[in-house]
């Protein structure tokens, strides 16, 4: 089970924040196929948001084939995201960590690193535009 958070000042639509957090959890392996997502009521009780917003986020995830609603039972994860194993993740995290240490030693601060990282991501993913 995951717990949603809201960044109320981000300007990102609330339902999209929920969608992104589910995807993030799928990528990191926090959510796995077969897991149940919190019910609309559980999310509402925690975040004090309109239940239709939660349902809209779940419909979007369903449309992308990531989750499926089972009437009377809840909404369940259908498939994982990212296609990489947990060990692969650990390896990439280590090499990124080494790069960040290197960047820091070169005098870059956190904002410089984030800007550079974002620019490279944009560059490498520009072909195809498939960033889901």
């Amino acid at each position: 089970m995951i717990e949603f958070r809201l960044d109320r000042g981000s300007g990102v639509a609330t339902y999209l924040q929920l969608v992104h957090q589910v995807k993030q959890a799928l990528r990191l392996g926090v959510l796995r196929p077969g897991d149940r997502l919190p019910t609309a009521k559980e999310v509402v009780d925690q975040l004090a948001i309109n239940p239709n917003t939660v349902l809209k986020a779940y419909r979007e995830l369903e449309r992308e084939g990531l989750v499926a609603a089972k009437p009377g039972l809840g909404t369940f994860v259908q498939r994982a995201l990212g296609g990489t194993s947990v060990t692969e993740h650990a390896r990439l995290r280590d090499s990124l960590g080494a790069w960040v240490t290197d960047a820091r030693a070169a005098g870059l601060d956190a904002e410089d690193v984030e800007a550079l990282f974002a620019a490279v991501v944009l560059d490498k993913f520009r072909v195809g535009e498939e960033t889901a």
Partner: peptide, 14 residues
């Protein structure tokens, strides 16, 4: 305010 709105939203969900 937060608690009143939260409880109202839960009632709408129910």
């Amino acid at each position: 305010r937060h608690e009143v709105m939260r409880d109202l939203m839960v009632a709408v969900a129910e």
